[in-house]
Simulated assay, not measured.
Amino acid sequence: MKLLRLLPLALALPVALASCSKDNESAGSSKLEVRLMDAPGDYQSVVLDVQQVEVHLQDEANPDGWQLLPFKAQTINVLEYVNGKSALLVNTDFAPGDLKEIRLVLGSGSYVIGRDGQRYDLKTPSGQTSGVKLKLDQATLRERETFQLLLDFDVAKSVVERGNWKPGNDRKERYLLKPVVRVVAQAIKGGLRGTVAPAAALPQVLAIRSSITVPDTFSTAADASGAYQLSGLPSGTYKVQFFPSTTAPANQPAYKVVTRTGITVTNEQVTDLGQTSLN
């Protein structure tokens, strides 16, 4: 996020963000995050053509319980997301409740690049019709919490070579995609807290997760005592910005916009930033 040159405009942005955050909290919403990661495989690339991501909110037998998630269709080379890296597919506000299944609808553009450097289209019959369905156990979203569905894609088991294929045959017929995906569902309970001085500055507080490609921003406001806390934060590295919403009395030092960087948030723990001076 870029700070604007004029302070009044700079103050207006976090105020608006904090206002939206409070509205979401008063509505009792939660946040749903869907990520994709991979176990390495013996290919140069394995590219999935992901068209839609949906979740099922009803019993499995009910065909009407599917809800489309906000996701932009894209191709994803899953081999880029190994050794702890993950692709963020969805990050959205969501109503609290139970999730029963998640489904990935794949297009016709999935392919692999083998060790020989050649491209081979992947046939994905189930993924292009009914979608790749994955059952969820104990996936419950609660108010003001972030819930993460981590889709662990196993390339070695998912890409199947036809036994009767020989060099010179149609390359489209060499590989089938039969996705083997393990789902790790967890509530994300990291947090940040601290105090500001002077408390009279009543700052808006923005926590920006900078350790991902598209940064997430979470916001709150310090109370009259100068205390603040942000909950339901995904693990990662953050910068925290403080925007005073008032001006200092004439006989006191001016309040300043302050940015703290390199703040680490870990799941199940609340990171205490101690006191931050705004003078």
Rank of each mutant, 00 (worst) to 15 (best):
M1S: 13
M1G: 12
L6Y: 12
P8F: 13
P8L: 13
L9D: 15
A10S: 15
A12K: 07
L13H: 08
P14E: 06
A16W: 06
L17T: 03
A18P: 00
C20I: 01
S21E: 15
K22H: 12
K22F: 12
E25Q: 15
S26R: 07
A27R: 11
S30H: 04
K31C: 12
L32F: 06
E33G: 07
L36C: 09
A39G: 09
P40T: 04
G41R: 02
D42A: 11
Y43E: 05
Y43F: 13
V50K: 02
V50L: 12
Q52C: 07
V53I: 08
E54A: 14
H56V: 07
H56Q: 12
D59H: 07
E60G: 01
D64Y: 00
G65R: 04
W66R: 01
Q67P: 00
L68W: 02
F71T: 07
K72A: 08
I76S: 05
V78T: 04
N83K: 14
K85F: 06
S86N: 14
L89A: 04
L89C: 04
T92V: 15
T92H: 14
G97R: 00
L99V: 01
I102L: 15
I102G: 05
L104E: 06
G107H: 05
G109M: 06
V112P: 12
V112H: 11
I113P: 01
R115I: 04
R115E: 10
G117M: 03
R119N: 14
T124C: 10
T124A: 13
G131R: 03
K135N: 10
K135R: 09
L136Q: 05
Q138G: 15
L141N: 10
R142L: 13
R142Y: 09
F147H: 14
L149N: 07
L150A: 13
L151H: 03
L151N: 00
F153M: 10
S158N: 07
S158P: 03
V160C: 06
V160P: 03
V160Y: 02
N164G: 01
W165V: 05
P167M: 03
N169G: 14
D170Y: 00
Y175C: 08
L176P: 01
L177Y: 08
V180T: 14
V184K: 11
G191S: 08
G191V: 06
R193P: 02
G194M: 06
V196M: 01
A197K: 15
P198A: 11
A200V: 00
A200S: 08
P203V: 02
Q204R: 07
R209Y: 09
S211T: 13
D216R: 09
T217W: 02
S219L: 02
A221G: 08
D223E: 11
G226A: 08
A227N: 13
L233C: 09
T237M: 13
V240R: 04
Q241M: 10
F243H: 05
F243G: 01
P244V: 02
S245H: 00
T246A: 08
T247C: 07
A250R: 04
Q252M: 07
A254W: 03
Y255C: 05
Y255F: 12
Y255W: 03
K256M: 00
R260C: 07
G262K: 09
T264K: 14
T266R: 14
N267W: 03
Q269G: 01
V270F: 05
S277M: 12
S277L: 14
L278S: 02
N279E: 15
N279S: 13
